[in-house]
Write a protein that binds this DNA or RNA. Structure first.
Length: 503
RNA sequence: GACCGGGUAGCUCAGGUGGCAGAGCAGCGGACUUUUAAUCCGCAGGUCCUGGGUUCGAAUCCCAGCCCGGUCACCA
């Protein structure tokens, strides 16, 4: 990164400070520090016992504010738990150490030790009698000025708001925005609670290949790569599905994987080219079992992470207490679109799609027309949570037909929240004859120019021929769930390093 | 991929009907032993996204491109 003008000026000034420190025998980049407490605990301790007895603390963190007053200096130190004020006095620290205080900059990492007291204005503060510089910053961090106004509101006077800069330099975004740090703490808690829930139910946490010779399990364009030593074309997975079901064939019975999948498609507020999915498979279960499991899992995560069953997302209240309302796919289209798609064939379906405003309805096949009808007429109403079940067979090539003879629909459901598909599940197709037919149908669509159609995965068919028990499977978009729980409008706010065009 | 909006100091933003490049915060020097958007005095800091064009003169107008955001398409 090249700097011009002022940035170079600031960096030069700080390099000179580093030189000064070294000349004073101070190493500006330390090896270790051992804090005995954190900002939050220090304040809490003072409030419980500090008013009567002395509380000594040893804290480490980043310098968030500095106010020099000649022979005294006030600073705020920030660690992962919050901020605490530090008071430096030349007569306490001595001339040499106080010179180090005067060389501090915003953003420096320091360790301080001292007793807690309350200042004249009432703020709990560390009276530092030791200071250790842990790491000097060379580059100015874009801290905003903060204050509490008369009505008690929190005001940030300037900040670091440019989205591109925040995403490209996430380290700076995290360093200056405690709320951003908190959002990613929520993300790890979501992952932990998903694992805890599934581990408690006897699921095995497994890992399957990301580099795959044949991709499948979803309809999407893949990323392609090449392995030198094997001289082999490989694809980054678009779904975990086919490998996880091989494990069900192998008798593991309950498996799940949380990991990145990769789809070579456009990005927007709810799509990143690499994103995190949970996929799980449970032997002997069907999609009804998956409905219960999905609702219980999501509810568990919501309650454990937020402390409540309800979430406020972009001004809308979402209630995750099970069971969610259930609506069949055809009922949903009838209810919101006043169209009975199950009765429509060929031209009539195309006419209905045209009337609904589906784009390119002239050129689309039956599956795309059905999907288009649902997306234009229904999706916006699914603020949810709501379960849409029994999808048309055209839309669900990997799900079993609805039992009991009605072969137009499959045993598949999706959980909708905030008009997004959060989870997708079905009674898995375990009939190797039918699976082969469906692969062959995909190949025909591929020959007709549909790039995303699946290839035949002979090894997967071999696995099915060894016998897969009836199995329920479910996939859940981790990023979107985290968006809901952190009230984030964009997926880029919940992915530490979202995909951007290289600079 | 299409359309719309944006890109000016480290950060947040003015300027935009063409006429010396601006503010606040951050930075540097000085004063200040309970401050907290500290205050006061002084100083410094610019590829106005890039490249062309029009013009006596372009941050400003025109063209092309780059990057970001939004909407749509694709998709989860």
């Amino acid at each position: 990164m090249t700097e011009t003008g002022e940035a170079q000026h600031v960096i030069r000034a700080r390099r000179e400070k580093v030189e000064q420190l070294r000349e004073m025998g101070i190493e500006p980049y330390a090896y270790r520090y051992e804090p005995t407490t954190c900002a939050e605990a220090a304040v809490r301790d003072y409030l419980t016992v500090g008013e009567q007895s002395t509380v000594n603390v040893r804290l480490a963190g980043r310098v968030r504010s500095l106010r020099f007053h000649g022979k005294t200096t006030f600073a705020h130190l920030e660690d992962r738990t919050g901020k605490i004020q530090v008071y430096f006095r030349r007569d306490v620290l001595g001339e040499a150490v106080y010179r180090v205080v005067r060389l501090l900059d915003l953003g420096d990492w320091i360790g301080v030790e001292g007793a807690l007291f309350r200042t004249r204005t009432g703020e709990i503060t560390v009276r530092a009698d030791e200071l250790q510089l842990l790491a000097k910053t060379l580059r100015p961090l874009p801290f905003g000025k903060e204050e509490t106004d008369e009505s008690g509101g929190f005001v940030i006077h300037s900040g670091f708001a440019d989205l591109e800069s925040r995403y490209r330099q996430r380290y700076a975004d995290l360093a200056v925005h405690p709320k951003v740090r908190a959002r990613f703490v929520v993300r790890t808690r979501v992952l932990r609670e998903i694992r805890r829930f599934l581990d408690d139910r006897g699921f095995l946490d497994v890992e399957t290949p990301i580099l795959q010779p044949i991709y499948g399990g979803a309809t999407a364009k893949p990323f392609k790569t090449h392995h030198r030593a094997l001289d082999a074309e490989l694809y980054l997975r678009i779904a975990d599905e086919l490998y996880l079901k091989r494990l069900i064939v192998g008798g593991l019975e309950r498996v799940y994987e949380i990991g990145k999948v990769f789809r070579n498609e456009g990005t927007d507020r709810t799509h990143n080219p690499e994103f995190s999915m949970l996929e799980l498979y449970q032997a002997y279960a069907d999609y009804e079992d998956m409905m219960e499991l999905t609702e219980a899992l999501v509810h568990h995560v919501v309650v454990e992470v937020t402390g409540s069953s309800t979430v406020s997302y972009q001004g809308r209240q979402l209630d995750f207490r099970p069971p969610a309302p259930r609506l069949s796919w055809h009922e949903a289209v009838r209810k919101y679109g006043s169209v009975d798609a199950s009765q429509l064939e060929g031209r009539a379906l195309r006419a209905a799609a045209l009337e609904a405003g589906v784009e390119d309805a002239d050129a689309k096949g039956r599956a795309a027309l059905l999907d288009g009808l649902f997306k234009t007429l229904v999706e916006e109403h699914l603020t949810g949570p709501v379960i849409i079940y029994d999808y048309p067979v055209e839309l669900s090539p990997l799900a079993k037909h609805k039992r009991g003879g009605d072969s137009d629909v499959t045993e598949r459901f999706e959980l909708y929240v905030a008009s997004w598909e959060i989870a997708n599940a079905f009674s898995e197709l375990n009939d190797p004859f039918e699976q082969r037919e469906r692969f062959e149908a995909q190949v025909r669509m591929r020959e007709e120019g549909w790039e995303e159609a699946h290839q035949i995965d002979e090894d997967y068919l071999t696995a099915l021929e060894y016998g897969m028990p009836p199995t329920g499977g479910m996939g859940l978009g981790i990023d979107r769930l985290v968006m809901l729980l952190t009230d984030s409008a964009s997926i880029r706010e919940v992915i530490l390093f979202p995909t951007l065009r290289p600079e």
